[in-house]
Write a protein that binds this DNA or RNA. Structure first.
Lengths: 296, 296
DNA sequence: TCTTTTCGATAGGTTTATCATATGGATTTG
DNA sequence: CAAATCCATATGATAAACCTATCGAAAAGA
């Protein structure tokens, strides 16, 4: 069952003349006759009637001709398809990000630029917590992700640092300090804090807590929300205050105001994270694009 | 582009372990590694990531796996299908017959027996004049046919004689001789005859005319009908008389009576006709069945 | 930490399969 | 009747696939 014989057969069926077919294939007539005989032996039936002037297809040969053409065609497409995927011209990439990352314009910007440059690539997006995203990177459910990981939790992954963002204070509009344009962190010492569970993303959580402690107090956390975006909603509702990366200020709401921090400010790093092991072509393309856009 | 490599690849993709895959295929590991490398070179991209413990599929490899399976499957089915057609287990046969032949129970009997014995064979039936049927046999539109040909018009075809049938006289029920059970042919000397055009089937036509001439007269043909079955309708309508093969007496009609001929009777031969050159398996099967049923 | 095991890649020699040249046999054409 | 056509066969050459032996890297076990 050799595709070469399939190809030889198709040419013979098209020419109905072994000598001419051999010329077209680029071999001599005897080996062609031989290959057809071997094919017939393998199939178990004659595919050609040998006439005194050329040959003609048997009924079995007729049927085999259409099938053989299909097989050759499909084999050709299988190779082409794999080649395209191998070159990153086609395929699929799964990109993860945390809710806080999605507010940095760089993230949606890079993704839409990638989509434009690779129209035949399926881009699957997945917003999730840092913890779950890291897990999905490790088990292959994600190819690459925009996260704010702590150094310790990504030792087995490839991390590409993108930005350091200053953090800002998010206050309820009704807060006594809401009219101040610039606040010192220590002014929040007695305020109730809204934060997300530490397990959902320890790096940012720890940066906030450490920042407070540098300012001389431990934040009093009165309420947890699953993600940073939802903590802002709780701030807007007057439940408490919180700290958010600068880019989160895009999330404007009538009940919340963002204020710059005077003095030592905690920062939030935004990184691109991917598996170390098999650097898929599309993952490579995407991270190259990120690097290019982050620099430029 | 060799199917062997496709098969090797699929086994490797299933095992994700070259050494184990090689064992399953029945070759040593080095040539298998080599064949995979050649395949990857041909496709133009890596299909496996080589890990320290076994291998894993690249995205291109994933896609190629499903395609390769399809190609192998389709190639297998192409061979099986051709084999079945070659053995006559599947396929198509086109059987022709003249209207007069179709009234001989042997013809429909043989066809339905053949259908029962070969349920996967498509049987295409075609009723036509002898002349057209012979033409269709020669140009391949028919595989085999039940006809009453003249010896001269089938020199290039294979003819298998089946039966000699006596001919009978078909009279209008209103005919003066309709009450006689047995008639001599000469008694029709002055009767008007209904016949079909000689070009539609000279053998039977000539047998009728010759029979009359042996009985001492030339039939006076007053009306032609395209086929023998339609001449009987004209007889029933009282237009004239005619001679028909014995088996046509099955075509009973209130206006027509059939009478045996006393003395020298013309006969009609029923034959199975097929092309000489490429004896297709199904044609052979069908003619074998005819021979068996004709003898038994 | 060092040894052992595992597993794919490489190297060199052997077998098998494919191809080329020369020729035969059957039929058709000039 | 000779020449040409066209597929089949025979035999020797070349290329491919395969085998055994071995390497090198990483992981598992001591």
């Amino acid at each position: 069952m050799d595709l070469r014989r399939f190809r030889y057969f198709v040419v013979c069926a098209e020419e109905l003349h072994f000598t001419r077919a051999a010329r077209r294939i680029g071999i001599a007539q005897p080996p062609l006759s031989q290959q057809i005989q071997l094919l017939e032996k393998e199939v178990g039936t004659r595919l050609f009637h040998r006439l005194t002037r050329g040959v003609e297809l048997t009924p079995a040969g007729e049927a085999f001709l259409t099938d053989a053409r299909n097989v050759l065609d499909m084999a050709e497409r299988a190779m082409t398809s794999a080649r395209q995927i191998g070159r990153g011209e086609r395929g699929s990439i799964k990109i993860g990000f945390t809710s806080s990352a999605s507010f940095n314009p760089f993230v949606p910007g890079t993704i839409s630029r990638f989509r434009a440059e690779n129209p035949d690539v399926e881009v699957v997006l997945d917003e999730n917590t840092t913890r779950v995203s890291l897990q999905n990177l490790r088990n292959g459910k994600l190819d690459i992700a925009f996260l704010r990981p702590a150094p310790g939790e990504v030792h087995d992954l490839r991390v590409q640092h993108l930005f350091h963002e200053e953090m800002r204070i998010a206050l309820p509009a009704s807060h006594p300090l809401a009219n101040e344009t610039r606040l010192k962190l220590s002014m929040l010492a007695t305020d109730p804090f809204v934060l997300y569970p530490r397990t959902n993303g320890q790096a940012l959580y720890d940066a906030i807590v450490a920042g407070c402690q540098n300012a001389g107090f431990s934040p009093r956390i009165v309420q947890e929300a699953p993600q940073m975006a939802s903590t802002v909603s709780l701030v807007a509702a007057g439940v408490g205050v919180t700290l958010v990366p600068e880019s989160m200020c895009q999330l404007q709401s009538s009940g919340v105001v963002y204020r710059e921090i005077v003095g030592a400010k905690p920062t939030a790093a935004l990184s691109l994270v991917q598996r170390e092991r098999p650097p898929s072509v599309l993952t490579g393309k995407f991270s190259d694009l990120c690097r290019k856009l982050a620099i430029g």
